[in-house]
Nucleic acid binder design. Structure first.
Lengths: 241, 241
DNA sequence: GATAGAATAGAACAATGTTCGATAACACGC
DNA sequence: GCGTGTTATCGAACATTGTTCTATTCTATC
């Protein structure tokens, strides 16, 4: 993702689709908006071309006029969400570089964590996902202000992006069908999880028991920021603060 | 993943499948081995029940005797790979905690990065994926030796796991169909990627141009370790080294 | 008003996950 | 040895899904 390259094809793709449309705009957006709605409601598994077409009140083939297939649909849907992050962080960049980095990272986290489907599709193809690339650029720019070597900057930026995506995708894990369908509450689901951990053998799993009370009822966001601050502390150290 | 809980169901699942078989062992392993082979060769998309059945020289329904469905098959296949990591790091734990942490993290990275399919399925359901849980435990145990508070330990462990999975999944991104099918070499693909980045506007993408030479021909492993060391440096700082 | 392209729609196709019922292999009590 | 119930296998059948094809409607432009 962070380091995932654009496709090997030519930069421009004028032959197919109206993504390079010149006049009638408007409907690619509605397709993507509909896709995001379905994804938020039912997860990646729920996004079928037919379900999307039904929501849009049209036929299945119409969808294919705007995207080349389901994969591209998911890529573009993911990218459209990241566009929101881009807007929300548009004015970041004036303060302490590390603080700005944290601000952007948290904004990105917030966008991903409530969208379990996002993690797998963020930063997949930076030629299509222009917002992803811009976000990567924006994070990199904050790192640049730390006056590290290009190599260090590259590693640090990738580390931040990798951490954000990994942790968010982790926490926003697509829940089992029973939960997403609503027949099992998230709370009961989590309660069953911790109960299962507590039942583990104490001598074989000392760490699990060491942190189980923290895990129980923990806040994902706190956990995320806690880890992020470790990473940023290391970065600040490298930069000679 | 790191924080992903076990399922909300009952701990034991004796009713279904021979996963709790008492005598004739041997075939769940072969099913999983076959699945991993296909996954390594053709990616997650290539793993169809029919392809697996064909490789095993049997019918499709036989597969369903060992796993409840494709999802569980992927979970178990992922977990079986992590079993290898568990073995490879069995004797880690005697040296400097941070160094041991790095050793385990790198071993985990190595296992994931060459298996693009793995990232999405690692640590999904720790009730089924017993190796994943053990690995999480093992990482946590190293962190425990730093004498942090339970809360700090929890955050640090999750951060390491999140970073490893996020970065590895990122770098091991499932490549486009053209690459996996072999009709386009990985080198050409990457070359096209960097060329596209170089073509970006210099004023709008200063960071990209700042690091493009590093990105070009970079080594994924170096990049991973570079970021990991930032995280570990922050952790060492918190622990009062 | 005619024509070319944009855009839509539904039917049809191929692939896939999954289930069902039947059948074989096997272990064990008599 | 024989019957019986469990373990395991198999192929056919079904429902769903991604995708393509062809025909049709709409719209702008001359």
């Amino acid at each position: 993702m962070a380091t995932a390259p654009p496709p090997g094809e030519a930069p421009a793709q004028p032959p197919r689709g109206p993504r390079t449309r010149t006049r009638a705009s408007h409907s690619l957006e509605s397709v993507l908006a509909g896709a995001v709605e379905i994804l938020d409601e039912s997860g990646a598994q729920g996004l079928t071309i037919r379900a999307l077409a039904a929501r849009l009140g049209g036929g299945v083939a119409s969808v294919y006029w705007y995207v080349s297939g389901r994969d591209e649909l998911l890529d573009l849907a993911a990218d459209s969400v990241l566009g929101g992050v881009l807007e929300a962080t548009a004015d970041v960049g004036g303060g302490d570089p590390i603080d700005d980095l944290r601000t952007i990272a948290v904004a990105m986290f917030d966008a991903i964590v409530d969208r379990p489907w996002l993690g797998a599709y963020v930063l997949r193809d930076t030629a299509i996902q222009t917002h992803s690339l811009q976000l990567y650029e924006r994070i990199g720019e904050q790192v640049m202000r730390l006056d590290l070597t290009p190599r260090q900057s590259f590693h640090a930026t990738s580390a931040v992006v990798g951490y954000v995506i990994g942790t968010a995708a982790d926490m926003g894990q697509e829940p089992p069908q029973a939960v997403v369908s609503g027949e099992l509450s998230k709370e009961h689901y989590m309660a069953g999880a911790t109960a299962q951990w507590r039942a583990l053998d104490r001598t074989r799993f000392p760490y699990i028991h060491h942190i189980i009370d923290e895990f129980d009822g923990h806040d994902d966001r706190d956990q995320f920021v806690g880890g992020l601050d470790l990473l940023l502390a290391g970065l600040r150290l490298q930069a000679g603060h």
